[in-house]
Design a protein around this nucleic acid. Structure first.
Lengths: 190, 190
DNA sequence: CCATTTTCTTAAACTAGCTTAATTTTTAAA
DNA sequence: TTTAAAAATTAAGCTAGTTTAAGAAAATGG
């Protein structure tokens, strides 16, 4: 059960069977159909989500009209609105399944309790968040130094599986360019 | 000693005098003159830095010609190249004092030892990094939804102390616009 | 299968923000 | 207290990427 999550945790800290049992108690599993939502704008985000299998996107509504994707999460990634989660404020985001997905949710309150019982998880989450910060710094550097064309080429070379799995207009949104321009770039390259 | 750091930590977890003493042992203090560097491109980043007092910038060299600022750190902020730190790879960044600054450095190895001795610091750093992630998500949202003009106005309204403390061309670099364009925007507003 | 909806493409007109280059103002060192 | 260096301004010309609008292709579900 929850093998991807357990394996992910064991890469950083070790857990025995009793500890794994405690972890299980804190988890609410969700089997999402394509397009199902985990979080809606206006709700306080009360969970952190781990993608056991599948693909999620996080987006907000720009000028009340267009969906602006800010993050994807594939198998093995954590996702949440950390601002809403930390400060208990209504979220501006939606989190939605792009394909049928299996997601493990831990509610804020259970999360705090779990960390009290298994303090080694503080370390696991510290390390996971440190890696997320590293990824953010890298992405931010690319944004500063690359043109949109370079940014797209870099992304599609680095994550070819995304280009397969995610509709093109969503990739465009995530990369901050229009679907029309992305289409033009694709034509250019082939 | 190190009152800003101690206060910052005590806002999240508690430390007694013995524990504070252990923390002291892990810290290397630096008194930096204006323009002094803590990290240079090509070096592996071996420290996390806490700004007790002053102001730092993190930047890299774009196309081997222009300095591109990716982060500032004022009093009470942690800064590091988390990618270089985590993966032990040479950094692409410079970290430099913008004004005379008092910085507390903890080396990777002492950091690991310290966390073994004071596991409550895992929690402190987990919370600190979670807040940094929240800040990153918010900044990223602004980048997606605002024009450069709006982004500048928002920044200067939100952080007027920066506009005082940091040269205009550095603010421009951080916001991802040219100093010429920033100058034009300023004229427009007054 | 067929019909509807969703996604992708094409191309022309447009603009936010950049480049270049010269000038002025401010800062700082001697 | 002068001189050089660093920072900020101005303005014209330019371009990467957007907008608009329409049509084509692909996916989906009943």
């Amino acid at each position: 059960m929850y093998t991807n999550l357990i394996n992910h945790i064991q890469r950083f800290v070790s857990l025995n069977q009793d500890e794994i049992a405690l972890l299980h108690e804190a988890i609410k599993p969700y089997n999402l159909k394509k397009k199902e939502h985990l979080l809606n704008e206006g709700q306080v985000c009360k969970h952190i989500y781990f993608v056991e299998k599948g693909c999620l996107r996080m987006y907000f509504i720009n000028n009340k009209t267009t969906e602006q994707i800010t993050q994807f999460a594939l198998d093995g990634w954590w996702i949440s609105d950390y601002f809403s989660l930390t400060d208990n404020t209504p979220s501006n985001y939606y989190i939605q399944a792009i394909e049928a997905s299996e997601v493990l949710a831990i509610e804020t309150i259970s999360f705090e309790k779990l960390l009290k019982k298994l303090p080694q998880l503080e370390r696991y989450f510290r390390l996971t968040m440190q890696r997320a910060l590293a990824a953010n710094q890298l992405r931010s550097k690319y944004l500063y130094e690359m043109s949109k064309e370079e940014f797209y080429q870099h992304f599609s070379n680095s994550f070819p599986e995304f280009i397969q799995r995610v509709p093109q207009y969503m990739v465009a949104s995530y990369l901050g360019l229009t679907p029309e321009y992305l289409s033009e770039l694709r034509k250019k390259k082939h």
